[in-house]
Amino acid sequence: MTGVPALPSTTVVLGSASPTRLRVLRMAGLRPTVVVSDVDEDALLDELAGAPSDEIVTRLAEAKADAVVAAVVADGRAVDTVVLTCDSMLLINGELAGKPHTPDVAVERWKAMRGSTGHLLTGHCVRKIVEGETVASTSRCESTAIHFSDAPDEVIERYAATGEPLEVAGAFTLDGYGGWLIDGIDGDPSSVLGISLPLVRKLLAEININVTDLWIAPTPSS
């Protein structure tokens, strides 16, 4: 891959515990360091009650960025760093749904949303830090329509029993067991996995960073 450096000069920090987001970025040529934020999402959701849905997920991503930037700066690592944070929720039947946490809640949600269409909203925030100072920041929300299958009760219950939907926004995945139960999507598939590559590319450009400058050259296969 001509022109891709072995090690870019800018460090990328992913402010998320999601293994799927990390995998998406790695498959797309980045090698981010993971720093998980300690944001109280429930408290922030209470503060944002009544706000537009896209604003809520974007504010959650921004709050995570605040916490991650503070941690990175305090650790003395923020010489030339890009911080990426995201937060996803499903907008369906006029309500936002996050992680169900328990099988019973996951089953209840799936029974309510089967055979219908929801919109996965993913807020993104990108911050650039130079010598410990945030010099640029931008954020936005990506929306992707999800068409859920009309799954029978038995299938829903068995899906919930796998444990997969318990800690993911909207109680579904696209790249796991949940993929069998999604009839289609309209929009960016990477956003459904938790981080929109096209939107991140645009946000980076807004703060004068070319995403190709963050790519790491692949290791030659043996």
Rank of each mutant, 00 (worst) to 15 (best):
Pro8Trp: 01
Ala17Phe: 01
Arg23Trp: 05
Gly29Pro: 07
Val34Glu: 04
Val34Asp: 05
Asp38Ser: 15
Val39Gln: 02
Leu45Ile: 12
Asp46Gly: 15
Asp46Lys: 15
Leu48Thr: 06
Ala49His: 10
Ser53Tyr: 13
Leu60Gly: 05
Val68Ala: 07
Ala70Ile: 06
Ala71Gly: 13
Ala74Gly: 14
Asp80Val: 02
Leu84Cys: 13
Met89Gly: 06
Leu90Glu: 06
Leu90Ser: 07
Leu91His: 08
Pro100Phe: 01
Pro100Ala: 02
Pro103Glu: 14
Met113Tyr: 15
Arg114Gly: 04
Thr117Gly: 05
His119Ala: 09
Leu121His: 10
Leu121Cys: 05
Thr122Tyr: 02
His124Asn: 10
Arg127Trp: 02
Glu133Ile: 12
Glu133Cys: 07
Thr134Met: 10
Thr138Arg: 13
Ser143Thr: 14
Ile146Ala: 08
Ile146Gln: 05
His147Ser: 14
Tyr159Cys: 04
Ala161Arg: 11
Thr162Val: 12
Glu164Asp: 11
Pro165Asn: 10
Glu167Phe: 15
Thr173Phe: 04
Asp175Thr: 07
Gly176Tyr: 03
Tyr177Phe: 11
Gly179Phe: 02
Gly179Pro: 00
Asp183Gln: 14
Gly184Val: 11
Gly187Leu: 07
Ser191Glu: 03
Ser191Cys: 15
Gly194Thr: 04
Ile207Glu: 04
Asn208Arg: 11
Val211Trp: 10
Ile216Pro: 00
Ile216Asp: 00
Pro220Trp: 11
Ser222Cys: 05
